[in-house]
Nucleic acid binder design. Structure first.
Lengths: 346, 346
DNA sequence: TTGAAAGCGCTAACAC
DNA sequence: GTGTTAGCGCTTTCAA
């Protein structure tokens, strides 16, 4: 930054027109004489002009930026903010989410600001960030049921869209999956394979998604003459899946089918099964959920219920954009369908 | 946003002082009478004032934002921009990087803007983004040797810091690891275990880091009487590690020690070894590099060369900050030490 | 179709 | 220690 960056004024002088005209050309507004338009473009080229974002934002009242926030439910005492970020990023789920968001934003020359909000202070920072106009809205990914952030944003009428129905009711828009149907697909597939003794490893049951996957699975099994389904609660991590499976196996050695509420846990399940000398899928069929990278990294590759994460994330961004542009509109929700992806594990 | 957001003016009126005074209080500048300070704080509280970022940036000429960019070396024809993002995020390496960056930024109330620059157009967008003042500088993580972005930024004197020495020489600051030393630690450990027939699986050899890990390993082996080391080039992915190992094994069934240039490949190596009926570490000892999540997710957990990623990423952010604040200073580099983490695989 | 001019909300001299 | 004032670079009426 040795020399001062050229401004609209400089370009105007160079092109022999007014600032307003240059502004019109830059913003692609019609009603500008083609000749002048060319002159202006030439001047922009020559001066190496780049519009100043802050100045534009000041008048348009738009940051043209959105925040991608991953929030937890910790309180201020917790100083593990960083571990939280690392843990979230380690979840393969996240890569697909970012990919979907970026896919929507990039064509619009926008880039997401990454925020992790595990503590109360961090959540207040998110609210402040939006109130300052640093971002026009937020895409929220809650990792815990007790997350107060959605309500905080709704309270201030700050534009936001959640991934998944909020566990704590709040008047906000969200994008979700038909979890029950997804679980049903898994149940039917296990049944069709001839599994007679099935179990499910659930996610944290205070999360609506985990609850619905369980319910959908149980209901379908019940409808097919299996009123009771073995189950154990996991934490959506591979280790939790592995130990939940070990626990189940200890009491029920004859399990021949398992539905894990996400791929990471299914991966853990496979590990435990393998260590106990059982073959997948011959001895025990395993189905995961999400269709994220562990699904195909797993040996054997996992049969899983696909959640169209990229599309869902893109839909969130679209909804947010509409909310930002349209001013106050009431909350909406978009529900996507799940799909069974059959690989080797079941 | 029903009612207009309160401005400095409103707070000033409410507190019965001038805008300047309110500004001083907000920015924590001394020389403000404690009583007035309290009055102003009260007014801020009552009005619910939040400073407008754009207005501030306009005058301070600081966005107080930095870009975290992951760049590749693709050209414009490539339309796989999204896959690129997903692939990068899937790499466990990335979570630690973000964690380190966020750890440095958060206390300063800053958040990184995430950008993926795999195509030429995307790289130009990164440059434009910085030139517009949307971000004050960039943290660059190149995934390919031919990445032209560093040079592009240097050309425009835009503040940036790279992760790793640039493969294409460019006058930019960077933070790196003493790769050679790290590889030496791995070699010595394998030797100390009594391995006689060792092999190494390298990363893409056009990357300086991969090259140095190989050189460091070979040199140490040579110094200990092993002038020739078997090697195969991988692509830093688990699959590439698995197949490189299979290839090596085909020609040399007696391999008893392997050094993989990253954990992901080491994981693939373990998989291949396991499938070939060999035990790790009894039949073959395996050492990885990075100490990222696959290292402890792997069975057995990997002995690996730890790269203090979080600290490195934080150092990058610090260097960038200095560069932004200090104006033009010449490129610097900071090199971190590697450390051997002994687990079960070797 | 183009230009003149009025701010957007804030900081930073400078004066008091 | 506090207020006054002049912009920062841009968009956007409003006239011409």
């Amino acid at each position: 930054m040795t020399r001062q960056a050229p401004t609209l004024e400089d370009v105007a002088r160079e092109a022999g027109v007014s600032r307003a005209t240059v502004s019109r050309v830059v913003n692609g507004i019609r009603n500008v004489d083609p000749a002048i338009q060319a002159a202006v473009r030439g001047a922009i080229e020559r001066t190496g002009y780049a519009p100043n974002r802050a100045a534009r934002s000041l008048v348009t009242r738009r940051a043209e930026t959105i925040a991608l926030v991953v929030s937890g439910a910790g309180d201020d005492s917790e100083s593990e903010q960083n571990l939280f970020a690392a843990r979230v990023l380690a979840d393969p789920f996240f890569g697909r989410v970012v990919s979907g968001v970026v896919g929507f934003l990039r064509p619009r020359s926008m880039y997401p600001v990454l925020m992790f909000a595990e503590t109360g202070a961090a959540r207040r920072d998110v609210v402040a960030y939006l109130r300052q106009g640093s971002a026009d809205g937020a895409l929220i990914f809650s990792t815990h049921a007790g997350d107060p952030l959605p309500a905080m944003l709704a309270e201030e009428s700050l534009p936001c869209v959640l991934f998944g129905r909020p566990a704590l009711p709040a008047p906000v828009s969200y994008v979700d999956l038909a979890h029950r149907d997804g679980a049903r697909l898994a149940a039917e597939h296990l049944l069709a394979r001839g599994c007679r003794r099935v179990a499910t490893i659930t996610g944290p049951l205070d999360l609506p998604a985990a609850q619905e996957r369980l319910t959908g699975f149980q209901d379908t099994m019940a409808r097919h003459g299996h009123p009771y389904v073995l189950s154990a609660e996991g934490g959506f991590t591979a280790d939790s899946g592995a130990s939940a499976m070990a626990g189940l196996l200890a009491g029920h050695a004859d399990i021949d089918g398992v539905f894990a509420a996400n791929d990471l846990m299914a991966q853990g399940v496979c590990r435990t099964l393998h260590e106990s000398g059982r073959r997948v899928p011959d001895d025990v069929a395993v189905i995961g959920f999400d269709d994220s990278s562990p699904a195909y990294d797993c040996r054997p590759p996992l049969t899983t219920v696909r959640q169209p994460m990229e599309e869902m994330a893109a839909a969130m961004a679209r909804l947010l954009q509409e909310q930002i542009e349209g001013g106050r509109t009431r909350p909406t929700s978009v529900i996507f369908d799940a799909e069974l992806v059959v690989r080797a594990s079941a």
